[in-house]
Design a protein around this nucleic acid. Structure first.
Length: 375
RNA sequence: GCGUCAUUGGUGAAGUGGUUAACACGCUAGUUUGUGGCACUAGUAUGCAUCAGUUCGAUUCUGAUAUGGCGCC
């Protein structure tokens, strides 16, 4: 089986929806947040800890695993699930974003065939094509593979985006043609920047190719404004089928997850919870806090009294600050556990809010508290 | 007691007769959205032991004092 999305309830006053995704590794409710495990590990967390924060699908990366250890070794170990000992579903990103982010200021050559660029590890010349990306993902044996797309910077011109969207559609078609893993779903990606006509065109043409799910890409790049991000979602969603899952790539911040859900997005992924954790910061109901701040030095309270995560159940802020300021790896681990749980809990609450038709009230209440201490 | 060398921020220290006293660490605050993992950005001595003198101008030269290291009696 590939995956199956079931739409259970549409929200009354918004585009938000509650649903379920059935996979070979269990059934999960949406909206959901997917933790990012680029190199076949959600940085610093064991699979047991991931289950402990109620994770569903997690994300791994085609580009990174292609270079190291190589898809053949993963396949030899029995596929990604066995390789990393994660018993939940796994989505693999196609490498399209890496072409954009790794080679941001370096030489890269985007051709019709694919993208020529240099390895970030040893500088060797690489060529990633739609066919290659799909072949790697087939071997990695993830539950969901992503089409190989071009992820243009927010600064890209309309003309550039127009051509880029066309090429991404051609690449999607080529990738789908060679996809041959019967247990793996394949998603298409809508691009088009902040332009309504490009998003519409990209969505309609991508849907014609009939994928198992659709994602909205090219958002949250390079300091793109939130308004542009929300527009990109609004311009794409109306053209996506109701009976397929919708994935907003790379998002995000709590406020963006809420805004995305309200606009009809089902799943999200983002490096933020684990990255800011390693840099000593945590999401809380009252906004983001920085453990480098001196005010936590003697703070014997829990990170969040109301949070059910391992970190909040067992440790004081003073201890976490000590770990962070002394650069102990446990500090980043504890904050990663909390931050991921925070975003997953957020989506759990959003699901409840959709079921009860209280999503706008929930947003208001959440953001009032969350933004109270900032700005 | 005599001689001698030293004294620069929270720390280790560089340096110069002349605009804002280098650098590092620490500290303080911020950034991070399909991860080139533990990064980046910014701020952080109104003052160079104290007092006097030389000088247009002294942290930098001179003298005294204080404190410390070393040597001698």
């Amino acid at each position: 089986m590939k995956i199956n999305y079931e739409l259970i309830k549409n929200s009354k006053n918004t585009n938000a929806r509650y649903g379920k995704i059935e996979t070979n590794y269990g059934t999960y409710e949406t909206p959901m947040f997917m933790p990012v495990g680029t190199r076949a590990t959600v940085k610093s967390l064991t699979p047991e800890e991931l289950i402990g924060v109620h994770s569903g699908i997690i994300l791994a990366n085609t580009y990174h695993l292609w270079l190291r250890p190589g898809e053949d070794i993963v396949a030899k170990c029995g596929g990604l699930h066995k390789f990393m000992n994660y018993k939940g579903p796994i989505l693999t990103d196609s490498g399209g974003f890496q072409v954009f982010s790794l080679a941001k200021n370096k030489q890269k050559d985007i051709q019709e065939e694919g993208v020529h660029f240099k390895s970030h590890i040893d500088g060797q010349n690489l060529l990633l094509t739609p066919e290659k990306s799909i072949a790697i993902q087939n071997k990695l044996d993830s539950d969901i593979a992503m089409s190989f797309d071009e992820c243009p910077p927010a600064s890209a011109s309309y003309e550039y985006l127009k051509n880029s969207v066309e090429r991404t559609i051609r690449w999607a078609k080529r990738g789908k043609a060679v996809h041959n893993n019967p247990n793996q779903a394949l998603f298409g990606i809508v691009q088009g920047g902040p332009y309504e006509d490009l998003r519409k065109y990209s969505a309609i043409e991508t849907v014609k190719l009939d994928f198992d799910g659709y994602s909205i890409g090219g958002v949250a790049n390079d300091g793109e404004s939130k308004e542009d991000m929300y527009k990109a979602i609004e311009y794409s969603i109306p053209y996506l089928p109701e009976n397929k899952v919708r994935y907003l790539m790379g998002v995000g911040e709590p406020v963006d997850i809420i805004e995305g859900v309200i606009r009809g997005v089902d799943i999200f992924d983002c490096v933020l919870p684990t990255r800011i954790a390693r840099h000593g910061q945590a999401f809380t109901r009252n906004g983001k806090i920085n453990f480098h701040n001196a005010k936590y030095k003697e703070d014997t309270s829990k990170l969040e009294e109301t949070c059910d995560c391992y970190t909040c159940q067992n440790y004081t802020k003073a201890y976490i600050r000590h770990l962070i300021t002394t650069n102990e790896t446990l500090g980043g681990r504890l904050l990663s556990i909390h931050n991921i749980r925070f975003l997953i809990k957020l989506t759990e609450e959003l699901r409840e809010a959709i079921k009860n038709d209280k999503i706008l009230e929930y947003k208001e209440e959440f953001l009032t508290k969350y933004n109270k201490n900032s700005v």
